[in-house]
């Protein structure tokens, strides 16, 4: 089992952003995507997660292995922490949210409605959701936004445990995660070249 991305090109709003992105992840590995704002990190992650089609290239992974977590946590404000997690566990067909509650330090908040959590606590709940998916490949977009230092360390521990258990992680982030073993891929050099203007007026109008 692995995640292999070959020569990936992706676009946002019809505009090519990235091309020629290739990497492979095997169990136990983590890869951090870096690059300036707007370089296409989110687009690349959404493409790999299967939310949008790739312009070119291949994404090879066994079906049903990717768990995606975007900028928003997918939490329902009026449901409690337990209800939110139980729902996602049911959707992914796993059971037992206790482990995730304990690991992300949410035990005391279990009965609180998500709307009464702080931003960092919500983020922790969002990451706990990843743990209950039971999926091996985590695709995370800015996972540490609004986390304090202690929570970032907690998050790094959780990722490390996930990797140790044979999982994989693909993350886009700006900050140092405290995961020295993670490889780093700078997306800057993969910026899509502008199509040749002399080719004129082709199908894509570009």
């Amino acid at each position: 089992m692995s995640l292999k991305v070959t020569d990936l090109a992706c676009a946002r709003g019809g505009l090519p952003l990235l091309e020629g992105v290739s990497f492979a992840l095997v169990p136990g590995q983590a890869l951090v995507l870096r690059g300036p704002n707007g370089c296409g990190k989110t687009t690349a992650l959404r493409t790999i997660a299967g939310l949008q089609p790739a312009m070119a290239g291949q994404i090879d992974s066994p079906p049903d292995t990717i768990a995606y977590a975007g900028h928003a946590d997918g939490l329902k404000a009026t449901l409690s922490v337990t209800e939110n997690l139980t729902f996602w566990a049911a959707i992914y067909g796993t059971n037992g949210i206790d482990h995730a509650l304990d690991r992300m330090n949410l035990r005391q908040l279990a009965d609180r409605a998500a709307q009464n959590l702080s931003a960092g606590q919500k983020r922790r709940l969002g990451l706990a959701r990843l743990m209950v998916t039971g999926r091996p490949v985590w695709v995370l977009d800015e996972p540490t936004v609004s986390l304090d230092a202690a929570s970032v360390a907690l998050f790094a521990d959780v990722v490390r445990a996930h990797l140790a258990a044979g999982g994989m992680a693909l993350m886009a982030t700006h900050i140092e995660l405290g995961l020295p073993e993670a490889r780093v891929l700078d997306l800057g050099p993969y910026k899509a070249r502008l199509p040749d203007p002399s080719s004129g007026f082709d199908e894509a109008f570009l």
């Binding site: 709003g13 019809g14 505009l15 502008l194 203007p197 007026f201 109008f205 570009l206």
Partner: peptide, 17 residues
């Protein structure tokens, strides 16, 4: 419509470059 799309594409290209 084609011209409008062409124009949009050119503006986007400017922004990309």
């Amino acid at each position: 419509e084609i011209r409008a799309r062409r124009m949009k594409a050119l503006v986007a290209r400017e922004r990309m470059a």
